[in-house]
Amino acid sequence: MKKILHFILNGEPVEMEIEPHLTLLQVLRDRLEMTGTKEGCGMGECGACTVLLDGKSVNSCIYPALEVEGRNVTTIEGLMNSRGNLHPIQKAFIEHGAIQCGFCTPGMILSAKALLDENPHPTEEEIRNGIAGNICRCTGYLQIIQAIKAVSQKT
C-alpha cells in the first residue's frame, strides 16, 4: 500500500506517494531524480549517501523514507545559497584540493556541515572523528581535513 510522504527538501515542501519500503536514498535518486546524493556501499558503511536530516548527518541508503515525514532534508543540491554562491565548505574543498574522483564529495561535504554546525571550531581529532563515517579512496583525507579546518578558522 502506497503512503503519502511530506517533507521539506532543501527548503521546498515535497508531497509524494511512495511505497513504504523505500529508503530516503531511493526517494531522492529514483523518484525525485536528484542524483547528487550517491550510493556507494548500500549498507551505511561508506557515507557517500550522507544527507542532513534536521541538520544531522544520516546515511540515506539505510534510512526509511517514511521516517522523514514532516522533517527537513538537505542534500548537496541544496547547499548553494539563493544567490547562487557556493557554501564556504564547497569553496574550501575546491581551494584545498579536497576532491579527486569526487564520488565521496557530496556526502563528505554534508558530514562536514553537520560537524561545523554543531561544533564551529573543532580540533583536528574532532574533524577526523566527524568524517570517520565517510570513506574516501583517492585523497587520503588530509586535504579534506585542511578544508574543514580552514572553514572553521574563518568563522
Binding site: 547547499l79 548553494m80 575546491i94 576532491i99 569526487g102 564529495t105 557530496p106 561535504i109
Partner: peptide, 13 residues
Amino acid sequence: PNVDVLEKVLGQA
C-alpha cells in the same frame, strides 16, 4: 584547481 571540481562540489557530475 581541477577543471571538473565545480560540478563535483555541486553534486552535478
